[in-house]
């Protein structure tokens, strides 16, 4: 078949294939470089000074420590998930189970698409105006979490909605036929079958929170003090990502910055492995 082609066509095919391979090589090289370089620069710092994982930093005593940042990150993740899950799952349930009016559905979906397109720096500003100033939370983890709730609402909504759509209609009909009310059907039949989708949404949200900096900079602040959960919620604190930014950009302390970066990269890889795995489970279930 190839012999019949004119030289021009052969050359064009070869060129397109070559471009594909070059682009592919670039992306692979880039991913490998990002992972290996950050790990290679960061892990030696952690091994050299493992105590930084359990220390509170102190300039006076010259101690480096990222424990407060780790704890703040965990607090923010927990607080955000607690708030965003009911809201996002509820909204998704409304869209798939209750909404009859197509106009309303369209408006809600348009709003959620708009939300997911707004850059995080704008969330940071609005969060600052709304939660820090108007609601009087002050620069605190609580204000930061509330900002993240608005940011991550579309993610939870979308993944839950997709999962709800895969629940077979016959499950619902069967339950209705047994005389269950709508709420009972949703609670006992529909929701348990789409737990996978909700978990995927949670993990994606955790990933986004781990990576978020611009929205937290003006809402959650920069402090490196160690608190308990409720105390921390009321006080300003830096998450790992914000701490990375502060160390790298304002203090020029690249050793700690790379140590934090290595931790974040490892978490990113783990999160991606989990979501891929969950995606496969969903695929298999839908295939059946």
């Amino acid at each position: 078949m190839i012999e019949g082609l004119s030289n021009k066509r052969k050359a064009w095919c070869a060129l397109m294939k070559a471009l594909c391979y070059i682009s592919l090589a670039l992306v692979v090289a880039l991913t490998a470089f990002m992972l290996l370089y950050v790990l290679a620069k960061g892990i030696p710092n952690i091994i050299e000074n493992p105590k930084m994982l359990i220390e509170t930093p102190s300039v006076r005593r010259d101690i480096d420590g990222i424990l407060p940042d780790i704890m703040n990150t965990i607090y923010v993740v927990i607080a955000t998930l607690i708030m965003v899950l009911p809201l996002g799952v509820g909204a998704a349930i409304y869209l798939t189970e209750y909404a009859k009016n197509r106009k309303v559905v369209e408006i809600i979906e348009f709003a959620s698409e708009t939300l997911s397109g707004i850059p995080s720096i704008i969330y940071g500003l609005v969060g600052m105006l709304l939660f820090v100033q108007l609601f009087g939370f002050g620069t605190s983890l609580l204000a930061g979490s509330c900002t993240l709730v608005i940011m991550n609402l579309p993610t939870i909504m979308r993944t839950t909605e997709e999962a709800l759509k895969t629940v077979p209609q016959s499950y619902r009909e069967g339950a209705f036929a047994l005389g269950a009310g709508k709420w009972r059907v949703i609670r006992t039949v529909v929701l348990p079958t789409c737990v996978n989708g909700i978990v995927t949404g949670c993990i994606l949200t955790i990933g986004r929170i781990l990576g978020e900096s611009a929205a937290l900079l003006f809402t959650a602040g920069l402090a490196h003090r160690l608190y308990g959960f409720f105390e921390g919620m009321a006080n300003s604190g830096a998450t790992l990502t914000v701490a990375l930014y502060v160390y790298a950009s304002e203090r020029g302390d690249f050793d700690i910055a790379y140590a934090i970066a290595a931790i974040l990269i490892i978490l990113t890889v783990i999160i991606n492995l989990i979501t891929t795995y969950l995606g496969k489970i969903m695929e298999r279930r839908n295939g059946q």
């Binding site: 990002m34 974040l264 990113t268 991606n272």
Partner: peptide, 9 residues
């Protein structure tokens, strides 16, 4: 998934 600050770093 890599946080943007790591790209910055």
């Amino acid at each position: 998934g890599i946080p943007s600050v790591i790209y910055g770093l």
